[in-house]
Amino acid sequence: MHIQDDHTALLRCNDRFIIIELMKAQNWLMLTYKVPAEPAKKRIGLWRKLKGMGAVYLQNGVCLLPKNDDHTRRLKIIENEIHEMAGESVLLETVALDKGQEDKVVGRFKVDRDEEYAEFIDKCDDFDAEVAKETRARHFTYAELEENDADLKKLQTWLEKIRKLDFYGAARGVEAKRRLDQCEALLDAYAQHVFEAHDENR
């Protein structure tokens, strides 16, 4: 077998050559740490910071992130913060033993993101219901439009944040984007009603 590049190899079989795709191992950064139980505020803040980066916890005090320069830099900073908390930590680079183990870890990342997408979709439903209620009541005011526009911007920012942490393309990401598009279209239609209502009153 002749390795052509990082992704493919040329295999000779019965005087024929077959191109096969090589599995590219996913490298992860694994942070293991132990911090004092008190003050709890610092311990919880550390957990929130790591979850906010998109880390998955394999068990208490052991978390993973895909390896890249940004994650390496931020985890080194967190490692120093743990030291300042009188805690202990080790930061390692690791890979899965085989494809099955890698799929398990990737699956954990996807589950976490899908849970966030589900929560986001629920908020989109709330947004739709609110705009629909105002439309049925023919409550077409600029004040209501501004309030709904602010809520839509929060949804847009929230989805962008989730997608940045969706390292492996969780299943509900497409649905979440579709729901946001629907919210935007619904608000556009409501805005048109507001503009028309105010034009009629002039």
Rank of each mutant, 00 (worst) to 15 (best):
L97T: 08
D188G: 10
I121Y: 03
A176E: 04
L152I: 04
N68R: 01
L152R: 07
H193A: 11
Q4V: 15
H83R: 14
F127P: 06
C183G: 01
G61M: 03
G54K: 02
D151H: 14
E116Q: 15
A176T: 05
T72G: 05
A189D: 13
Q101M: 12
V194L: 04
D112M: 14
C63G: 02
E200F: 02
Q192V: 07
F17S: 12
Y190D: 01
V95H: 05
F109V: 06
M23Q: 14
N14S: 13
A25E: 15
E144C: 09
P36Y: 01
Q101A: 13
P36D: 07
R113C: 14
V174D: 10
D112I: 07
I18G: 07
Y190L: 07
R178D: 15
E175K: 12
E196T: 10
G54W: 05
C183D: 08
K49L: 13
D126C: 00
F109G: 09
E93G: 02
T8P: 03
D122S: 14
E116N: 10
D125L: 12
A25M: 08
R16Q: 15
E115D: 14
Y190H: 06
L75E: 00
D15Y: 02
C63K: 06
E175H: 05
D199K: 11
E102G: 02
Q26W: 02
V106N: 00
Y117F: 15
T157M: 13
G173M: 01
Y142P: 01
E88H: 09
L187M: 05
K153R: 15
L165Q: 11
R163V: 07
W28L: 09
Y168D: 06
F127Y: 09
L92Q: 11
H193Q: 15
K133C: 07
E38N: 10
F127A: 03
W47C: 05
K123F: 08
E175S: 10
G52N: 09
L97R: 11
R202P: 04
E115L: 14
A132L: 12
M1A: 12
K161W: 04
L97H: 08
D70H: 11
R74P: 03
I82R: 02
D188L: 10
T94N: 05
E115C: 10
K76C: 08
D181E: 14
G169A: 04
L31R: 04
G54Q: 00
V194H: 05
Q59P: 06
R108S: 11
G100C: 05
D188K: 13
R43T: 06
Y117C: 13
R73G: 11
A143Q: 15
V95P: 05
Y57A: 14
R202H: 11
A176Y: 04
Y117N: 10
D112C: 09
L145N: 05
A170Q: 01
R108F: 07
V90C: 12
E160Y: 02
R113N: 10
